[in-house]
């Protein structure tokens, strides 16, 4: 059974100010298997976040259905952990309370929350920062907290919306490596949104290349490259060349459409 199933998803945004509709997602069908690491790749504005938000339950599809683990999605829930582009930590809570926020909602006692948080704090390499406040953390550390917080939900799927986009190159590489290690250990399903071809190729078991607006799936590419991925190897570069060509074509079509 597929872990995530998108069936004929269409999303139209009503632009109240300009009184016109915007077709953001056009008839997308996609299923993601258990333990898969799917990268949604596309240029900015093509509807990646919109698609992810519909899986998360923040947005409702105008047409079509989203099911996760066989259950119809009709709102956000703890069975789907989300890591945002901005970490979105509660600034008034220390690191460990942010990680264990879900348990606070479930009414756990403080000592139990603290214990439960530690495992995930260690997993993302933040031991020693448990009592720091978000304002005291770097961008990379904040994202680690966001990841630990999503992992603690022990969700069927983890949704990530360009979580490393704002990080410097070195930190980004470290985090990507750690994320793959965590994914391999936890055996969860990941949907990872990115606009970087390299990032998609380093992380994914599959890459879904999206068209520019309105968003459709242009091509699904299975990656059978060994890990850790060799970013200079010939097969990596074959994939990269192919995807870059797709993106170039998309760009040209869009420009032509704009002129016409």
């Amino acid at each position: 059974m597929a872990s995530i199933d998108l069936q004929n998803i269409t999303k139209i945004f009503r632009d109240a100010k300009r009184k016109r509709d915007l077709l953001a997602i056009d008839d997308v069908s996609l299923s993601v298997e258990q333990n898969e690491f799917l990268c949604l790749l596309g240029s900015s504005g093509c509807g990646k976040s919109t698609l992810l938000n519909m899986i998360a339950g923040f947005e409702k599809p105008t047409e079509g259905t989203v099911t996760v683990g066989g259950k119809l999605v009709d709102g956000p829930g703890a069975d789907r952990g989300m890591v945002f582009q901005q970490a979105n930590l509660m600034p008034w809570l220390p690191v460990w309370e942010n990680v264990a926020f879900h348990l606070r909602l479930k009414g756990w006692r403080k000592a139990d929350r603290r214990d439960a948080a530690q495992e995930y704090i260690d997993m993302v390499g933040l031991r020693g920062f448990e009592n720091h406040f978000p304002a005291e953390l770097s961008g990379g550390m904040s994202q680690r907290v966001g990841i630990a917080r999503a992992l603690l939900l022990n969700p069927q799927v983890i949704l990530m919306d360009e979580p490393f986009a704002a990080l410097d190159a070195q930190t980004k590489m470290d985090m990507q490596e750690e994320l793959v290690a965590i994914w391999q250990k936890q055996r969860c399903t990941v949907v990872f949104v990115t606009h970087s071809v390299d990032e998609a190729l380093v992380l994914g078991t599959r890459v879904a290349v999206m068209t520019s607006r309105p968003g459709r799936i242009r091509e699904l590419i299975a990656l059978d490259l060994p890990r850790p991925r060799d970013t200079t190897g010939p097969r990596f570069n074959d994939h990269k060349r192919h995807i870059l060509n797709l993106i170039r074509e998309e760009g040209m079509q869009q420009r032509q459409a704009a002129v016409a």
């Binding site: 998360a56 923040f58 709102g75 956000p76 829930g77 703890a78 789907r80 952990g81 989300m82 945002f84 901005q86 979105n88 930590l89 509660m90 926020f101 879900h102 909602l105 479930k106 917080r149 939900l153």
Partner: peptide, 10 residues
């Protein structure tokens, strides 16, 4: 976004 994050956690 904080409200989103919290509703994601149920």
């Amino acid at each position: 976004n904080l409200i989103r994050a919290a509703s994601m956690m149920g």
